[in-house]
């Protein structure tokens, strides 16, 4: 697998994504600085977490105008794989590559902890190694992960099985007490209609090695490996 990690000013999970690709997945990975106008030919582009442009104005609002974003859009338009994690998800929303928007967490504070997610769609390149309904333990770390969208958009996401991950209990039950940020319909991660772009608030790169407390997130990278090979 050939992967590219885009670095924006203020990205801070860029090296975490890079290291997982290189050390854990043994993938061929490189960084691309946001001022580049083109991307190297690759299977997967990762928009990492962090505070691009200090989260000033709105999360992801300024990064979407970075020169590299045109190439990222082209990459996605060609049906190749794109994942946005945390701030990367926020950038995808601002750039219109995924529908909806982010609000501040309902607690109004930054939250960093492990949460349970239920996998509600496995028919996509990112979760093909999961069982439908499988729950995974994975960290979140954000101040604005309260996903929102209008009713029509939500219906579209539901009808076309674009909601991949929902916050849940360990047993897979959803409800307010399991939703850390107040996101609509307990959404933690969604796909685009073409199902080649995934945005998610939780950090799979932080749960890909047992020494860090768990490796449930590694299944996402393993799914991608399968998708790229096939």
């Amino acid at each position: 697998m050939k992967a590219t990690v885009v670095v924006f000013p203020g990205s801070n999970c860029d090296s975490d994504c890079f290291n997982v690709m290189k050390d854990v997945m043994k993938a061929d990975v490189q960084y691309v600085w946001h001022k580049e106008a083109s991307l190297p030919k690759c299977d997967l582009v990762i928009l990492p977490g962090g505070f691009s442009y200090g989260d000033y104005l709105r999360t992801g609002a300024i990064a979407r105008f970075s020169p590299v974003m045109k190439a990222v859009k082209d990459h996605a338009d060609q049906g190749r794989l794109l994942i946005g994690i945390c701030n990367g998800f926020q950038i995808l929303l601002e750039a219109g590559l995924l529908p909806g928007a982010m609000l501040r967490n309902k607690t109004l504070s930054f939250i960093c902890k492990h949460v349970w997610l239920r996998t509600d769609d496995t028919n996509n390149p990112f979760t093909n190694k999961f069982k439908k309904g499988q729950t995974i333990l994975i960290p979140i770390a954000h101040g604005e992960g309260n996903y929102t969208c209008d009713d029509a958009t939500l219906k579209g996401l539901q009808d076309q099985n674009q909601i991949v991950f929902r916050y849940s209990s360990e047993a897979g039950k959803t409800g307010e007490e399991f939703n850390p940020n107040g996101s609509r319909d307990d959404i933690a991660g969604i796909l685009n209609q073409k199902r080649n772009v995934l945005g998610m608030m939780p950090h799979p790169e932080r749960s890909s090695e047992q020494v860090l407390g768990g490796s449930d997130g590694k299944q996402i990278w393993e799914s991608l490996l399968v998708s790229v090979k096939s």
Partner: peptide, 8 residues
């Protein structure tokens, strides 16, 4: 284009 996000 920039100052607001028309979605919200």
């Amino acid at each position: 284009q920039l100052l607001i996000n028309p979605v919200i």
